[in-house]
């Protein structure tokens, strides 16, 4: 890793592959950015552009003038923060026991968990549940349903299974209790998976609007994604969703891509800013020095 190695053909292939994939994945982003900064006619003229034309911030302005933007931003941040915090706690507590192969009842519990990943009662029973918990029109109704998923739990458990048992045994011999082992030994060693699940959970919350549609009644409680979706539909006068014939639109048949793309950018940017902080946890050698002798 630190020896001055020459650039081998192996490196060459790697770099080439990565560059090609990067070009392909960068393109849509550039396209979205460019269109969001262009005029509508410029978009129609060339929908695939990566360079803005008739550069203007009209689409962004249209989003920014809404006071609901800020309240929905705030809501999304609260929801994401609570959801990630609550979720991580649950994941850490639950994954650790399940990572122990000797745990009695492990198989049953795993089946119990996997079952929940596949079977779902649908929006009506979930609505009833939230209603009886008195959580309709609260942010908690958005936080709770997605806080703890079997999928993430299994990922964390798998990671923890890889942690050498000698560490725990050594600690136990020193008289450490399970909580101590979990929070003082396992958790620090699990930083990569915790960071990963934080990222996954945060993104899931940030992009979500479906829960809000079902449980939220007042505009004050809208999360960001829902607000942005509604901006788009109000711009096209909701002719489609009302089921009327498309001729009922008072404005022309405009699919306001410039606006749509601007909303995408508004949603994406915060998450992209978070990622660099998470990246540093993906460092090799986290186990280094932990197993002595």
């Amino acid at each position: 890793m630190n020896t001055k190695t020459r650039f081998s053909w192996f490196d060459g292939i790697n770099y080439l592959l990565v560059i090609i994939v990067c070009a392909a994945t960068l393109y849509p982003f550039l396209n979205v950015l460019a269109v969001s900064l262009s005029s509508y006619s410029a978009y129609v003229e060339n929908p695939l552009r990566i360079w803005p034309k008739d550069m203007n911030l009209a689409a962004y302005k249209e989003i920014m003038i809404h006071p609901v933007l800020w309240s929905s931003y705030r809501n999304s941040i609260i929801v994401t923060a609570c959801g990630v915090a609550g979720g991580m706690l649950l994941y850490i507590l639950s994954a650790y026991p399940l990572s122990k192969r000797h745990l009695k009842g492990r198989k049953i519990i795993m089946v119990f968990i996997v079952f929940t990943m596949l079977f779902n009662g649908g929006i009506i029973p979930n609505f009833y549940l939230m209603r009886s918990l008195g959580l309709i029109d609260t942010l908690a109704a958005i936080v709770l349903p997605m806080m703890f998923s079997g999928f993430n739990l299994i990922l964390m458990k798998t990671f923890m299974e890889n942690i050498p048992e000698e560490l725990e045994e050594a600690a136990k011999m020193d008289g450490a209790s399970e909580p101590y082992i979990l929070f003082r030994i396992i958790v620090p060693l699990s930083k990569p998976i915790i960071a990963t699940l934080c990222l996954f959970t945060a993104v899931t919350y940030w992009n979500n609007f479906f829960q809000a549609i079902i449980y939220i009644r007042s505009v004050d409680n809208w999360p960001l994604m829902l607000f942005l979706k509604e901006i788009i539909s109000s711009a096209s006068l909701a002719a489609m969703s009302s089921g009327g014939n498309s001729a009922e639109q008072g404005i022309m048949d405009v699919r306001p891509e410039t606006l749509q793309y601007a909303t995408l950018m508004v949603v994406m940017l915060p998450i992209l800013c978070i990622y660099p902080f998470v990246q540093k946890y993906f460092v090799k050698g986290i186990m280094l020095g932990s197993v002595k002798g």
Partner: peptide, 26 residues
């Protein structure tokens, strides 16, 4: 302790996943 740790998670799944599953009767 291991089983105590499991309680919150299992409780969550029971309330938020299994209770609504009764709706599968639909």
């Amino acid at each position: 302790w291991l089983y105590i740790f499991l309680i919150p998670g299992i409780l969550y799944l029971l309330v938020f996943k299994y209770l609504p599953m009764a709706g599968l009767v639909i």
